[in-house]
Simulated assay, not measured.
Amino acid sequence: MVSLHAQRDLDQSTAAGAAALSTFTAAGAVGTLLGGWVGDRYGRMTSVRVGYLVALPALSGIAWAPGFPVLVLSAAVFGVAMFLPFAAQVTLAQDYLPNRPGTASGLSLGLAMAAGGLCSPAFGRLADTSGLPAVFYALLAVFVVPVVLAIRLPERTWKVPDAPAPALVEAAHPHEAR
Rank of each mutant, 00 (worst) to 15 (best):
H5N: 06
V48G: 00
P166E: 03
M82A: 06
S120D: 07
A75I: 00
L126W: 09
A55E: 05
A177G: 13
F136T: 01
Y52C: 04
R41F: 09
S105D: 06
L56C: 12
V135I: 10
F78Y: 13
S22Y: 11
V144H: 09
P85G: 05
C119R: 15
A76L: 08
F86M: 10
D128N: 15
R156H: 14
S105F: 00
R44P: 02
R156N: 12
M1D: 04
G28E: 05
Q94I: 03
R152G: 11
Y137R: 15
A19L: 11
V80A: 03
L73H: 12
P101L: 08
S105L: 05
S60E: 02
R8K: 15
E176H: 14
R41W: 08
G35Y: 01
A171Q: 15
Q94M: 10
Y137H: 15
A163P: 11
P166H: 02
L56Y: 15
S60C: 09
A87I: 09
G102W: 04
A75M: 03
G43F: 03
P174Y: 03
P85K: 08
L149I: 14
R49L: 03
A150Y: 04
V50G: 08
T129V: 11
Y96G: 07
A172S: 14
D162P: 09
W64F: 12
V48I: 13
A115G: 13
A114R: 14
A163I: 06
L73K: 10
D95F: 07
A88Q: 01
S60F: 10
A165R: 15
P133V: 01
F24I: 07
L107Q: 00
I62C: 08
L149W: 15
S13V: 06
A19I: 05
V160L: 09
H5A: 04
L33W: 11
T91A: 10
L53D: 07
A93C: 02
A150S: 04
R49S: 02
